[in-house]
Amino acid sequence: MINYIWFFMILAGVITAASSGNINLVTEGVLKGSEQAVLVSVGLIGVISFWSGMMRIAQDAGLIEFLSRLMGPLVKRLFPEVPPKHPAMGAILLSMSANFLGLGNACTPLGLKAMNHLQELNKEKDVASDAMCTFMAITSSSLTVIPTTIIALRLTHGAITPTDIIGPIVLATFCSTFVAIIVDAIFRHFSKGG
């Protein structure tokens, strides 16, 4: 799937550029994209290091295990193959909480930490495990309950009540996350059966 989308974007780009007589846009796109990739990954080094460090403290102090035991039963059903006391459970919970609160730059580092712990449980190291699929599907469907950036944007553009968007966002988020969980479960069911 990813191969086709990747190819489609390149093909469509080249055809569009050629037909509009501006083929150098493709080359510009390539340069822009590579530069952006370096900026993003270098930009993440600091904040990922920071949150990895904080997570290590939390782990060494037993905070992750405490969280897992406290909240584990709630998310256990979503990740049946993750042992409730495994640090992956705590990392998943922390990452989800950061997403709930819309803590922008904490979300990715905490999510990556969770993926790292899930990899410890994964048998085939280059294929996503079921738990990883569920986790990625849930994360990419958005969990935000407090959309701080959007409220701020509405505020600066002079909305009468900037926060009245929270209700609709929570409802729509709930729908997309619900669909992600259901579709993931369906795929999982059929891949097991087939």
């Binding site: 469509a12 780009g13 569009t16 510009e28």
Partner: peptide, 29 residues
């Protein structure tokens, strides 16, 4: 713990280059 951050970010680079180049070509053209 923070030692892992460096590694994680660098491991991302090839994936990001691949994805962002294709996205930029798609968008910029």
């Amino acid at each position: 713990g923070a030692k892992e951050g460096w590694q994680t970010s660098l491991r991302l680079l090839p994936y990001l280059v691949g994805m962002l180049v294709s996205i930029q070509v798609f968008q910029h053209t």
